[in-house]
Nucleic acid binder design. Sequence first.
DNA 1: CAACAGTGGTGCGATTTTTGCACCACCCAC
DNA 2: GTGGGTGGTGCAAAAATCGCACCACTGTTG
Lengths: 301, 301
Amino acid sequence: MHSIFLKYFDEVARQKSIRKAALLLNVSSTSVNRKILSVEDRLGVSLFDRTPEGVELTSVGTILLEHCRKVLHDYERMKILIDDMRDLRTGHINIHTIDSIAVGCLPRAMIEFGKIYPDISISVTTAQPEDVVQQVAEGTAEIGIAFTFSQHPDIRLLSEKSAPFGVLVRPDHPLAGRASVTVEDISHYRLVRTIDARGGKSIIDQAIATLVTPLSTHIFTNTLFLSKEMILANRGIGLYTKIGFYDEVERGDLEFVPLIQEMLANIRVGIFVSATSAIDTAKRLMCDMLAKEMSRMRLDS
Amino acid sequence: MHSIFLKYFDEVARQKSIRKAALLLNVSSTSVNRKILSVEDRLGVSLFDRTPEGVELTSVGTILLEHCRKVLHDYERMKILIDDMRDLRTGHINIHTIDSIAVGCLPRAMIEFGKIYPDISISVTTAQPEDVVQQVAEGTAEIGIAFTFSQHPDIRLLSEKSAPFGVLVRPDHPLAGRASVTVEDISHYRLVRTIDARGGKSIIDQAIATLVTPLSTHIFTNTLFLSKEMILANRGIGLYTKIGFYDEVERGDLEFVPLIQEMLANIRVGIFVSATSAIDTAKRLMCDMLAKEMSRMRLDS
DNA sequence: CAACAGTGGTGCGATTTTTGCACCACCCAC
DNA sequence: GTGGGTGGTGCAAAAATCGCACCACTGTTG
């Protein structure tokens, strides 16, 4: 919206060189030079004194620079304000998350958030961890919550928390009450676990595949509620993090026993945002609230 | 230097209509419309609500408008400052004037002016009244001082003063001491007057040509100093305004006797500037000082 | 003293952006 | 309906912009 000259002029003044500024601005020195010359011509004054080493601001140039920087500053401040207002107006936050978060801390965070921004609507989509990251990178989702094993260049990790895998069992199950279990221990039970939409590409699937002890899965599902029902119905034991079953464990309906296995015990869940576009205050607050809810949970026992 | 959008947006907000604004801005509504749409798109917000009657600022638009007007304001103020500095730097005022002023009040005005703007150089060119006007109209001269009989559309008259023609005589001349003289009275004496470079086109020549009483001119010259010498040497009587001989009359070396003749008695001398380009503060001051010096002179006796 | 590396400035052709005409869809008053 | 007003759009012409390949100049360096 503002003329490109403002940026050019500011940078040239900083670098005291048209060519250096052009380099930093990723344009040819011709462009920068012409913009400067054009304004000098229109104003009828020299903005810079030309020296063999580069350029040097004249007194008039100093005054103009002051004006330009003032404009740029004011624009930035106003832009932030407008961005906030737009997002308050549009009133939408798009969250992509792994399913466990969607039934765990996310509802609580959303309720807290709604008290402050009652007019902002929120959409929550559950997806596989890899897809969550992908959607955030593409800009489809503004906030993503997923396991942190994949590093995408276009996303930024705001905060993370250790979320080791374990087994979810009924309180009357033989494994209940144990401080931890090994892969050996659970190999005799039928598993209820997440379905792999991609067919073995998921990191969790890969971790399971590398186990020396084969695990037999009885029930695959991408619906956490179904897996809960199955576990409660004694159709198998769950292989999940504690997140999605936090309330049930707190109530005593289920028990969570950490699994001793390097890869699955070191899994961490994080909050992601796009690294290419800044997030506004409302989304930032949502992230903060999510992080707070997440940190409140005890996931390792 | 600033984006044209600022002007467009400001005007659309004022007119509450894109088409009306475009009309006032002398551009097609397409351009204005597209600029608005473009910024709306880039910012991701609506600047205006569209109504059947026109457009109406949104809350975001109001904020942006505030910013834009701030920028425009600040730019205007800075531009004035820069214009002043440029003219202080460039340091030149080009004055075209009739010769009498150049030896009369102009030197005094220049001295006064130099006390305030010591670094501004001044060039003074004497010329025929018609040429002075022409040079100012063309922009060759920034300030012109000439008789006010020709109205050129591109020049602006800043101030004027009555400067009636009369005769300049030695104190021992028969006409000395008279309150006024008629054409009849001077017809018996040989005249010293300005040369007509164009051959009869000058208004003063025309005025003389229309006289029923023929006047015989003995000496034509475009050098005021020469005419003074001739008058003092008794080679004739001068036919001029009092301006160029003000100091000599004040000292008593010469006497000025107004001429009773409608055309020549009603002549006025004025200060002209270009009507198409604004003058800066320094030039304005010069004009003011000139006007002050001119008004100080008593030219009718 | 010559070669060189660095600077800002420029001519020119390719490219991108801007512009305005001629429309369209819509709304309102009559 | 109809006519006059609004904002929005497809398209082709016009204008501005851009970047390459230079030039002139200066200060440094062998």
